[in-house]
Structures are given as structure tokens and as C-alpha cells.
Design a protein around this nucleic acid. Structure first.
Length: 488
RNA sequence: CGGGGUGUAGCGCAGCUCGGUAGCGCGCGUCGUUCGGGACGACGAGGUCGUAGGUUCAAAUCCUAUCACCCCGACCA
């Protein structure tokens, strides 16, 4: 008891907060809008990070680190960019405190005002492109394929753990290329990596497409996005990859001399995913009993619970199982807590979403078996000790597949094709999910739809299904269906 | 920034209307009995009542100011 979580059907948003709290992923902090990521939550992020980092490096990228602070003037170099971020910047104005002359505490020393204010980076395009100017002279310096793991700050009005926090952790890739084609290719490559990661590791199916001009990243010529559907039938933007054209090269005067001795501005991309992915993971798989982790990202994949409590003869068997499992790369642990009772532990590991639990008690020892409990289906079976490691390896794969499949089925169920506006409004209001509809391509229509239904244009699919039609709102001709949804 | 609400033990709350020197549940510690789905008993530790003023013999309670946080909107990875 005392660990009850709100049912999804009652209050989805409270359910989410309960999971974050009770699974020990994050706490609110003393700082408005900023969370403390607890060890268990951070371990999930570390696993994500490790895999993404591997994927970036395999595709030729290297890591570097740029400053947390950006001179205010840098931000305003690119007009669209500053417009997009100006309203949510944390600004450093002074560099020193002093004892309060009126009494206790310290105050900002007015003498220590900075000549130029510093902005805590909301994203690093400006400081990086200012640096790239010095690094790039010739086509031989290109491409420059750099990624940074960092924290950024965006002073959001309303925050939610992982989904939207004032400070968040992310990676931001910033690449420089000699040609437009190469930069476009890079943006698509990363887009593919993001989609692969989301589906194969988080087990979160995503739609791939491009953003409308209105939803595009501030300063980009083209924004590619992956969009996932959460269990409350709302969309989550899970990662974006931008083709920046020559916008930042022009703003920071980054030119290179080509093989043909012609000078030109450099072409750019930038791309990022954040700790928001942890929020997406939670909302994709978890249930009313707590977190459900996809095995590939679970800090602990298998937990052994001695029944009724740790004892030498149980530990001996557990050690053998663990050695065999670790040999196959399975992350497995033994619960050695003497105080808590088994029932409590079962509930606790379910809350934490550990994919598989092994129960070992006297009757298992006698029959040379263990009890195997899956978190995803709640099924329990007795499995012979002989060959248990391979059994578990296969089971973890099966759970990973099952979670992905379930999420895919859910998305399919919540995907609707709509051809008239009444139905559109009704589907958005009653059913939610992704709505494929025709759109006349104008910003006005997009905004009016948002205004009337709260649904936003999530993406324009990349592949043309060659189905022309009429805009669901205006009846004007449309070349393809686009995807609308209510989003986080 | 608009509208609503809350600050009392680690967490969740009662007490405030009608001032009298702080209580309940969970959690925490010790011991014992338990232990195959969130155990039980006994004893115990723990609170400048958000902060600063004021009224009063006396303030968690009344008054003033202030800060913080939460919820609903507008902004957003």
C-alpha cells in the first residue's frame, strides 16, 4: 500500500506524474521547472545516450563541447532564429555577488554588470557557427560532422517532468557541408537514425515526415520530424533533424573555397533528441501498475527475488544463473534485501518496470526450476534451470517485440482518414490520435484548424501516396494527405 | 501575464470559522512474530505551523505585506 498510482483512465496526466515519482525516475527540484533526474531515471537516459552515441559515431560523427553561454549579439544574427527563441531565454547580467549592506545574505553587486549579457544556450547553432567560421576555409575542411551532449535552457511557461522542463539534457548535432545535396542527405540520414532508435530501442513506433513552414525550427529551411503517439492519443514530437540551408553560414560568414576555386557559403544541418524521449518511453508502454521498460533500455533486465528471503542455497543457484546470463550480455541482478517481504518486492519491481522477474524458493530448488514473471503480460511460468540464460535472452527479445507491436496496434487503432471537416472535428475531439486529411498547403488554413480544434499539423509525410484531394477545411486542391493531431 | 487554489514532521492531510502553546495516516528506527503478491504488534525519533511585520496577557488560528509552489489558459524539444 501507499504506492497506489492513479489509473490512466481517471487522470492520464496524474498517472504520468505518479509513474515518474513512484518509479523513482525524477523529483521536482527547488528550481522552478527544473527536475532532479534520479539514478534510475538517469540510467535509462544513459542507456539511450550510449546507443545513440554509438549510432552517431558509426555514421562518422564525433563529439565536442561548446560553451554554455552565448553572447547576446550572437543570437540576433539570424533573424528567424532569434524570433523563435527570444521569449524563453535565461540571461546572465552580472558576474559577482556581495554581502548585503542592509543585513543578512548576499545581493548582486551592481558594479559587476557585464558589458554584454550572456544567454544560457537554448540551442547552440549560433556559438557553433561562430566557431565554424574559424575552422572552415576549404572544401577539404568539409564535411564537419560534430555532435554535442549538453544541457540547454528554455524558460517554458508550463513544465512537466521529462516532457518539458526548463533545463533539459540532449544531444545536438551540427554539421557543415560543401553542397546542398550533401547537407540534405545528412538531415535525412539522422532522421532515419532517430526513427530506427525510437522503434528498435524505445519500442515506440514513429511517423516520419517534414514540418510545415509554420512548425519548422527557427532558422531552418526544412525540418524533418519523428512523431509518436502516446496512450492518451496525443502526439509527441520525439526528434527533429533540420536542413539549415546557408542561413547560419551567411549569418556568421562561414565560407569555403571549392575545388573549382569558387567561394561559397557552407551548407548546414542540426538535429537533436532530448530527455523528452524518456517521457515518450513512459507514455508508450507503461500501465496502471507502473512503469514498463523495453528490455533494450532497461537498466536491469532481469531481477532475481529469493523467496521468502535470501538464503545460501538460493544465492548459490542465483549466482550460477547470473554468470550464465551475463555471459550472454543480459543485465541481471539479485535482490539481497533481507527485510522486505516477497510480495512487496514483486510490486516494487513492477512499479519500476523491470522486464523479467525470477522467483526462486524452496519448491523451485527441489524441482530445479525458477518462476519467470514477465512485466509486459504479467504471465508467470515455471522454467527449468537448464538453459535458463538462453531462454531469458529469447524472452527479452520477445518482450521487446511485443511492446513495439502493442504500440503499433494502438497507433493503427487511433489513426483515422478523414475527408470532411465535421468528421475531422469529431475525430479530434472524441477519438484523438493521428488524423490523415487533405490540406491546401496554406498557413492560414493550418492556423484556423489549430484554432478550431486544437489539433496541429504534425507532419507532411515524405513519401507521396499520390492521392490528391480537397482540403478538409477550404475545399481547395491538395496534393497529399498530411497528419494532424493534438500534441504535447 | 490572466483566472482559481495551496503553504502545518520525509510524504499526504486535519486543526484556523470561535486565539489558550500542535495532531492523524503513511513512511522512518529498535525488538519480536512473520515471509510464494504490497504483514502485524510493542516501543521510539521527528515540526522556527512559507517568510516578515502588526494586534493581543497569549497567534498555526485574527490583520497587513511578501515569497514560493500547484491547477486551468496563451508559448514550446
Amino acid at each position: 500500500m501507499g504506492k497506489e498510482i492513479t489509473n490512466r483512465s481517471e487522470d492520464y496526466s496524474q498517472w504520468y506524474l505518479d509513474i515518474v515519482k513512484k518509479a523513482g525516475l525524477a523529483d521536482n527540484s527547488a528550481v522552478r521547472g527544473c527536475m532532479v533526474i534520479k539514478p534510475y531515471g538517469y540510467a535509462i537516459w544513459e542507456n539511450m545516450k550510449a546507443e545513440l552515441d554509438r549510432m552517431f559515431k558509426e555514421s562518422g560523427h564525433v563529439n565536442a563541447y561548446f560553451p554554455l553561454f552565448i553572447p547576446k549579439s550572437f543570437l540576433s544574427r539570424e533573424a528567424d532564429h532569434v524570433e523563435g527563441f527570444a521569449k524563453e531565454c535565461a540571461v546572465v547580467t552580472h558576474h559577482r555577488l556581495m554581502n548585503n549592506p542592509d543585513g543578512a545574505g548576499v545581493v548582486v553587486d551592481p558594479e559587476a554588470k557585464l558589458e554584454e549579457e550572456l544567454i544560457v544556450r537554448p540551442t547552440s547553432e549560433t556559438i557553433i557557427w561562430n566557431t565554424y567560421r574559424d575552422w572552415i576555409q576549404s572544401y577539404r575542411d568539409l564535411p564537419l560532422l560534430i555532435n554535442q551532449w549538453a544541457n540547454v535552457v528554455r524558460w517554458e511557461m508550463r513544465t512537466r517532468p521529462f516532457l518539458r522542463t526548463a533545463e533539459f539534457l540532449w544531444q545536438e548535432g551540427h554539421t557543415a557541408h560543401a553542397t546542398r545535396e550533401e547537407a540534405v542527405r545528412e538531415a535525412h540520414l539522422i532522421h532515419d537514425i532517430y526513427a530506427t532508435f525510437a522503434e528498435d530501442f524505445i519500442g515506440m513506433p514513429v511517423l516520419k515526415g517534414r514540418k510545415s513552414e509554420n512548425e519548422r525550427f527557427a532558422g531552418a529551411d526544412d525540418t524533418l520530424t519523428i512523431e509518436a503517439l502516446m496512450q492518451d492519443a496525443r502526439a509527441l514530437q520525439a526528434g527533429t533533424s533540420h536542413f539549415l540551408g546557408q542561413n547560419f553560414a551567411k549569418a556568421f560568414d562561414v565560407r569555403y573555397l571549392g575545388e573549382d576555386n569558387q567561394e561559397d557559403f557552407v551548407w548546414a544541418t542540426s538535429w537533436g533528441v532530448s530527455t523528452r524521449l524518456v517521457g515518450g518511453l513512459i507514455m508508450t508502454h507503461s500501465d496502471d501498475d507502473g512503469l514498463v521498460l523495453p528490455p533494450r533500455l532497461a537498466p536491469t533486465q532481469v531481477i532475481i527475488v529469493p523467496i521468502p528471503k535470501p538464503a545460501p542455497e538460493i544465492t548459490e543457484v542465483a549466482e550460477k544463473i547470473m554468470a550464465a546470463c551475463r555471459g550472454l550480455g543480459i543485465r541481471i541482478d539479485l535482490d539481497t534485501d533481507m527485510k522486505k517481504r516477497p510480495g512487496f518486492k514483486f510490486a516494487e519491481y513492477e512499479m519500476k518496470g523491470v522486464p523479467v522477474r525470477l522467483g526462486i524458493g524452496k519448491r523451485d530448488l527441489e524441482s530445479n526450476q525458477v518462476e519467470v514473471a514477465r512485466r509486459d503480460t504479467k504471465e508467470k511460468t515455471s522454467v527449468p534451470l537448464e538453459g535458463i540464460a538462453h531462454y531469458l535472452k529469447d524472452l527479452l527479445d520477445e518482450i521487446q517485440d511485443n511492446l513495439f507491436q502493442k504500440a503499433q496496434d494502438f497507433r493503427a487503432e487511433k489513426t483515422t482518414y478523414v475527408d470532411d471537416f465535421n468528421t475531422f472535428e469529431e475525430v479530434i475531439r472524441e477519438k484523438g490520435g493521428f488524423v490523415y486529411a487533405h490540406w491546401d498547403g496554406t498557413k492560414e488554413t493550418e492556423l484556423e484548424i489549430k484554432d478550431r480544434t486544437k489539433a496541429t499539423l504534425r507532419l507532411i509525410p515524405l513519401e507521396d501516396d499520390n492521392e490528391t484531394g480537397k482540403c478538409v477545411l477550404t475545399g481547395q486542391p491538395s496534393e497529399r494527405r498530411v497528419v494532424f493531431a493534438k500534441a504535447y
